[in-house]
Nucleic acid binder design. Structure first.
Length: 100
DNA sequence: TGTTTGACGGACA
DNA sequence: CTGTCCGCCAAAC
């Protein structure tokens, strides 16, 4: 097990912990996972999730409240199902950000 | 093995 | 508001 694998697991754990109806930013997850200043790693890890993963990857958005995922389409739909809606293409973090 | 990319974020123009 | 620049670093090439 390399250090990078440990980081991946930390990220998986924290993402899995995001409550339904709430969202977290890449930077937030990075800090929680112990890798502040490396938010890109979160995106990289989520991008490599295996196709049947149960992780709520759609609850992770960028600090601007926008969806930077390649599949922002599905992501928006999943979020809407939980009551998290975009207003003018943005999510109100003040209202929906998970306060871990 | 060297270089480029990118699901980020914050500072600045 | 939009756009650029930089630090960051695993993956992809």
């Amino acid at each position: 097990m390399t250090a990078i694998d440990d980081v991946k697991e930390e990220i998986w754990q924290w993402v899995a912990a995001i409550p339904p109806g709430k969202v977290a930013t890449y930077g937030q997850i990075a800090r929680l996972a112990g890798i502040p200043n490396k938010p890109r790693m979160v995106g990289t890890v989520l991008n490599h999730l295996p196709a049947g993963s149960k992780l709520p990857w759609f609850r992770v958005i960028n600090s601007a409240g926008r969806l930077s995922s390649p599949s922002a389409d599905r992501q928006q739909q999943h979020l809407a199902d939980e009551g998290v809606h975009l207003l003018n293409g943005r999510i109100n973090l003040k209202l929906y950000q998970w306060d871990a």
